[in-house]
Design a protein around this nucleic acid. Sequence first.
DNA 1: GTGAAAGCGCTAACAC
DNA 2: GTGTTAGCGCTTTCAC
Lengths: 354, 354
Amino acid sequence: MDSADSPRSPRKRRKMQSITMTDVAQLAAVSPSTVSLYLRKPAAVSERISLRVKAAIDELGYVPNYVAGGLAAAGSRVVSVIVPSLRNAFFSETVTELERLLAQHGLQTLVGHTEYSREQEEALVRAALSWAPAAIVLTGCTHTQATRDLLRKTATPVVEMWELGCTPIDQAVGFSHEAAGRCIARRFIEQGYDSAAFLGARLGEDLRAAQRAQGFLDEMAEAGLPARLLEDAQPASTASGVRLLAAMDDAPARAVACSNDTLALGVLFEAQRRGISVPGTLAVAGFGDLDFAAQTVPPLTTIRPAADQIAAKVAGCILARDPLAGPGSAAEADSADAPRSHDTGFTFVPRASG
Amino acid sequence: MDSADSPRSPRKRRKMQSITMTDVAQLAAVSPSTVSLYLRKPAAVSERISLRVKAAIDELGYVPNYVAGGLAAAGSRVVSVIVPSLRNAFFSETVTELERLLAQHGLQTLVGHTEYSREQEEALVRAALSWAPAAIVLTGCTHTQATRDLLRKTATPVVEMWELGCTPIDQAVGFSHEAAGRCIARRFIEQGYDSAAFLGARLGEDLRAAQRAQGFLDEMAEAGLPARLLEDAQPASTASGVRLLAAMDDAPARAVACSNDTLALGVLFEAQRRGISVPGTLAVAGFGDLDFAAQTVPPLTTIRPAADQIAAKVAGCILARDPLAGPGSAAEADSADAPRSHDTGFTFVPRASG
DNA sequence: GTGAAAGCGCTAACAC
DNA sequence: GTGTTAGCGCTTTCAC
């Protein structure tokens, strides 16, 4: 039943890798370093030898060991990406796109999520650094002091994404959430709504949403219009939107800006349930332009952050510093001194809801 | 301007790590192996020495190198998780939860997404294997032959999740999608709907949705009721739901089962727009019990897969095989021969929509 | 263009 | 409980 040495029963701990580069080299009758060269810069190896090596690799089913490679090369081919939550569509979108882009250059993506905790983030950064990653990507620009110190001391490229404003540790890619908040406020003002509210959830954790709220409220205040802030204690969800609209019962505003589309969806449903006409009685705006935003009844006015562009730019920053990133990897050293904040902007998407 | 040796300008390629375990050992006046032991099994080191080592680590700001550790230990502390897409709420949920659970045991999560391509999956598995991971987690049980071969040859634990049915490569955690499809069909039958349709998107790629469709259609057929399949060519989205409802115009069914809640949301909106009453004229059911499902108008009848339970069980399978997983890691070798398919089931969530 | 030699930083026997 | 001794599998000068 328990056969002598099935691959799945670990007999002896050490040396789990059966076929190494040396085996390949032997079979191909070349030296290990030639095999290594073939694997990394195939162009530098003569065609005759390339063929032999390739044949040997296929025959043996050789799988390279990146761990050993990373150690010898003093730097691994992983990029650590740390986001607040993957449940949030913005971040899952960004991670997806980033993973795709980086994979094209042989870089693997290590993800971690902080649940919006800075201490958790610090722990993840520590763990990330232990992998000698090719780069570290963080979300936002608010971190513990220890995190900043740790990161500034390292030679690893660091990219902070989805937020602009603070001085970046190294590079930053994102946009101004305050401006996004103001943008929605201006829309309401232009449309003649004379009172408004910002509906958010856990603003103490989601600092970017808090900035949008701030921008929104400031713009309203500057226009001399009343605006208040309602906050749900649970993480942002459709249910939060439902609750917050109900909470506004006592002093209904004419227009509500939601911290994101998911919340706005809840507001829309609850309004429908209560017979509140949108945008007639209540204007609603969201943030994110999620999948469903164009399909709601009425279609949702929102803001589309350039998620793909953020991912693309982040990948660009990383690849620009990657020694193995192919021909276009020009200014490896120079780019360290290049402008360090990249604004990807956002698009205002006016629809019928407000 | 370009100062002598700022940490961020890579002077010499090799040896990027400044402070090693040897440095810590020296400062603490112990041997490197003691430091190593302290880091891995603090309990095995005397308190006096522990204190000294800890002080040295803090003073130097030592960051361990997992790459070197992984090489020496012939196995790294990463788990590779490969999903079709992180945009899909099911998988981002699972990855989130898995990452959280594994992080508690010092395991890092390496993600990859296949975009529903088996060839892409094979490439990711190859890359994953190169990290000598502590485990590999795959989605579904349909893989290329090469993937299966690669995986069966390795000693690395492999867990296939979110689907049951085929013989697992190693371990499987999930549920029967066919049963889920049948479950919705039975609901429609019980409620007296005499015709139905299954609305899906890219069923050739999303094999699990295809299984739900099959189960649904079979159950209807067995009840002698007409049912057809409508498929959208784009990836599943709210817009697909809108399109598919429109496509049903010529021969409207009395009830529609959607391949997931996102699609159902689109159906709900489009029905509202067209003045089709739900569930009066049309019954609608989804799959997933996503965030918004309980809030729609009317609330959405759906199926809740035990996403958290899947993640928990997958983590369990992995940790059971992890030599470092602490005290409860009993049956490390035995569990390899334990039952290999784990059914997490699902919950039918009847609401007002159908 | 190819090979020989010297580690990368750490872990795991094993002896003490 | 702590130190000594060998590597893990690969990359990278540097000769040839």
